[in-house]
Write a protein that binds this DNA or RNA. Sequence first.
DNA 1: CATCAGGGTTCACAGCTACGAAACAGATCG
DNA 2: CGATCTGTTTCGTAGCTGTGAACCCTGATG
Lengths: 190, 190
Amino acid sequence: MLVRWPNEAEQRKRLAERHIPRLLLVDDGIPPPESLDCLEDWIRLPAPESDVRARIDALRIRSRAHLRTVPEIDAHGVLRFGSSWVSLPPVEARLADALVVRFGAVVGRDTLRRSVWPGTAPGRNVLDVHVLRLRRRLAPLGLAIRTVRSRGYMLERAEQPEGMVPVLSETPAGDEVHLDDEVLEAAPAS
Amino acid sequence: MLVRWPNEAEQRKRLAERHIPRLLLVDDGIPPPESLDCLEDWIRLPAPESDVRARIDALRIRSRAHLRTVPEIDAHGVLRFGSSWVSLPPVEARLADALVVRFGAVVGRDTLRRSVWPGTAPGRNVLDVHVLRLRRRLAPLGLAIRTVRSRGYMLERAEQPEGMVPVLSETPAGDEVHLDDEVLEAAPAS
DNA sequence: CATCAGGGTTCACAGCTACGAAACAGATCG
DNA sequence: CGATCTGTTTCGTAGCTGTGAACCCTGATG
């Protein structure tokens, strides 16, 4: 989204509040704005077309990286992350929920056990087993459950080299990973 | 950190790997690089001094939002620094904690021993061994434990002088370069 | 000059615990 | 009845921790 600076200062503020990426076109002789967040960039006019395009592309990529970061789970046990989702059985849904609300932080085994089984405490290994099963379900979404030994678990984005294309890997028939609409990105050529 | 582009492409790559913010000074007539990174920006030369300064300031702000410039360890033994983290086993977590609270200062061996083993003190070698193991774990984060002979240890950012570029030749895209800790060796001069 | 001692680093090893993974059995639900 | 969900058991493996010993560097000593 392009904004003239300083003429359209109001517009800039509105976009910033709604976390929409924006490129400020700074008029000649005007000092550049201060306090940029990662979704804002500026360029001084006049500027070559290719430079403007380069900055717009960079903004677009950054915006993906910034927005896509937090998974969500609804009351029906459907967990969404990025462009895809899975439906989880009750126990794993509660487990996932406990991990999602503390996304990126360590959640102790006791905390997990209490969120999943509020009353009785089942066997000691159950938690591990369910973590294992949840791991398998979340992997295709690009989510990973990291182990913090003798402490607990942490839900994270799966660290992976840049060109990640989760689509069509193996999917041994009857798999249950669903994709939302906008699956394609990268290479905004044209 | 300023980098000429495209002349100092190697330098840029090195900084990117270590998550150090950088401003590329793009020579006239050269197409701008594809910046995917929130810690990277570029400006086309020649440019007014004030514009360069504005971009540097913006980078600094972003870098604060994105990385931790001071190591931090939580109750679960997870130590965060820069853009990444490691989980530490109990003993090393206590050791790291004692070093982190005095980040940048020398911590005596006795102090360390007492924080790690409040009660009985195990063998005499144990501390050294755990320092060694902690060193290895912290290296990938860009942290180094310096030895101050017959006094103690000091936790620091691992700064490597610019003159010495170890191996690191072409690195064919998306690989993992592990710099040996042999690289940082300097006279404590005390 | 050779040797030695102190301090530090690194390795190999052994006991132990926690976790991962598979296989199985009851439960539930269509 | 078949499929899925759930809990249990079991076993193998990887990680944590302390110990001992070899090695290296530096400064002191005979």
